[in-house]
Structure formats: structure tokens, C-alpha cells
């Protein structure tokens, strides 16, 4: 049985990675299992300078999912490259490291792309759901022109495969995906969180101090699968699919919709072994259905 997937020229042992922001820098979950058992990890979103993040509460539970408003608290790219990356690379030989980056300005993104080029990170995942401070806080990821510009400029500076992470909070996700592809993105990842809100009806206060936050978890899965499918039908670059994956069957569903890799996020909170169990689940599915190569699943949905 082959579970290896070549994604943007990087060989993953299996198609399962972890969702940025749900897995820290790998250290915590590596206490529960050997990260070489999964394909890779996407680290917490990094910014050029350390970031303090939003005021708590930063999490609310909603029906079948959660809302979060962490606000990208992180020690900054340089700290990651100097302190966390060497640990990961020394301890794990197969697990691929995806650096997730976020910026407030185009210049931030470009500079981060340049700095990462000199490291041994395997892939860059560019989160473009962040508000662009120079453009009045509109997220980069909602405007195809901005997506095109940012992808193109970062690609010029960055010698690592560049994966653009798409926000689901847009009218036409395929248009954004096509813009990223045309501008030179090597791959896409989706979905990021869906903007949501929860109000405590007794205190009449939103649970999140930020009032609104990003929704993730099992409840978002149908939306995510649909978006992966729509995007896969419109681009030729590979996709990391995510949003509510709980097990191997969910992962297979994303692969059938068109994802080459799948990412486990919120489910890690429910079960620290969620990602590695997803690997086993995919293998079980393959055995049961007599599938020799996991790559056969990618985009193999038979739409009506």
C-alpha cells in the first residue's frame, strides 16, 4: 500500500498534516506520539514581529464546533526559525514542516518569504485572511487583485513551495483560487475559519472578547468539502483540504473532493491522537476498498 503523496515537489509520508494554530509548534503533541507518523505539521501562524494576540476569552463552544479569536499570538518568525525549527528538524526526520505566515502589510509577507528561504522549512503556507492595515483592514484574501499581487511578490522572494491558504469568507472562492494560481502559487489550502459569533443570552455579552471569531470543527465540514470541490474543479495546483476533519473517513471525503493532503485541526483538542488516527483510518479505508495508492483518491468523486 502506498500512502506517500508528493505535494508541490515535497514528499509526504502520508497525506495527513495538522492545522495551523491548533498544533502549536509541534512540541506539545509530540509528547503524545511521534510526529514522524503523520505527514507534516503546519505551525502556528507567524508574523514578522512577535504578536500579543487578542484579549481573552478567545474560545467559545458552538454546536459541533468552536469559535476562536486568538489574534495570531506568536513569538515572531525569527524566534521560530532560531528556537523551534531546529528542535523539530532534529527530532523528526520524516515529518514535513510547513511555516504558516501572516502579515499586516504586503511588505511583511515579502520579508517573511525571504527569511524563510534561508531556512530548512519544507513549505510555506501563506494565510491571507488577515486584515490589511494599509487598505483599511480589508482582508487580503477577499480581493482577487490583492491575492494576485501578494502571491506574485512573495513568490519572487521565496524559494520554498508556496501554498496560499484561502478564507471561506468570500463570495466566490474559486475566483480567489484562480487568482492565486495565475500569480504562481504552488498549492492552495482551505478552508480557514468561518466568521461566527456567540452571545451569552443571560449576560447579553458575546462570549469572545473580540465579539466575533473564526468557526471550525465538525460543523463546518460540509462547507469545507464543497469549497475544496469547487476549487479543485477550477485550478490545476494541489490542495490541502481541511475543516472539521475528525477521522479517516472525513479525510477520504476531502481527498475525493480534490484534496491531495488533508489537515486535522480542532479535532486535536478533542483527541490528541486525532491526526495519527486519521492516518490509520485512511489506511483502513484503503484496505477495505482494495486501494493500492492513496493518490487514486484525489479528486475521485463521481459527481452526478
Amino acid at each position: 500500500m502506498n500512502t506517500k503523496v508528493n505535494f508541490c515537489g515535497v514528499e509526504f509520508e502520508n497525506p495527513v498534516v495538522t492545522g495551523s494554530g491548533t498544533f502549536g509548534f509541534g512540541y506539545e503533541y509530540s509528547q503524545y506520539y511521534n510526529l514522524d507518523e503523520i505527514g507534516g505539521i503546519s505551525v502556528k501562524g507567524l508574523t514578522l514581529k512577535p504578536r500579543e494576540g487578542n484579549k481573552p476569552p478567545r474560545i467559545a463552544e458552538v454546536y459541533g464546533g468552536i469559535l476562536n479569536s486568538v489574534g495570531l499570538q506568536n513569538p515572531g518568525l525569527e524566534n521560530f526559525l532560531v528556537n523551534d525549527l531546529p528542535f523539530l528538524k532534529k527530532k523528526f526526520s520524516k515529518c514535513k514542516i510547513i511555516a504558516n505566515i501572516a502579515g499586516n502589510t504586503l511588505e511583511d509577507y515579502i520579508e517573511m518569504g525571504r527569511l524563510i528561504s534561508q531556512s530548512n522549512v519544507d513549505l510555506v503556507e501563506m494565510n491571507i485572511s488577515c486584515p490589511n492595515v494599509k487598505h483599511g483592514g480589508v482582508a487580503f484574501g477577499t480581493d482577487p487583485c490583492m491575492v494576485s499581487e501578494i502571491t506574485c511578490k512573495v513568490k519572487e522572494q521565496c524559494n520554498k513551495p508556496l501554498v496560499v491558504k484561502l478564507s471561506p469568507n468570500v463570495t466566490d472562492i474559486a475566483a480567489i483560487a484562480k487568482a492565486a494560481e495565475a500569480a504562481g502559487a504552488d498549492g492552495l489550502s482551505l478552508i480557514n475559519t468561518l466568521l461566527g459569533m456567540k452571545i451569552d443570552i443571560n449576560s447579553r455579552r458575546p462570549i469572545l472578547n473580540n465579539n466575533v471569531g473564526g468557526m471550525s470543527g465538525p460543523a463546518v465540514k460540509p462547507v469545507a468539502v464543497r469549497m475544496v470541490w469547487q476549487v479543485a474543479n477550477n485550478v490545476n495546483i494541489p490542495i490541502i483540504g481541511m475543516g472539521g476533519i475528525q477521522d479517516g473517513n472525513d479525510a477520504v471525503e476531502f481527498m475525493l473532493a480534490g484534496a491531495s493532503l488533508v489537515s486535522v485541526g480542532t479535532q486535536n483538542f478533542v483527541d490528541p491522537y486525532a491526526a495519527v488516527k486519521t492516518v490509520y483510518g485512511i489506511e483502513e479505508y484503503m484496505t477495505k476498498h482494495g486501494i493500492e495508492d492513496v493518490n487514486e483518491l484525489i479528486g475521485a468523486v463521481k459527481p452526478w
Partner: peptide, 8 residues
């Protein structure tokens, strides 16, 4: 366990 930064 320290991985998600929501509990600050």
C-alpha cells in the same frame, strides 16, 4: 496542553 493559545 499549550498548543492553541486560547486560554491566556
Amino acid at each position: 496542553i499549550g498548543a492553541c493559545l486560547v486560554c491566556v
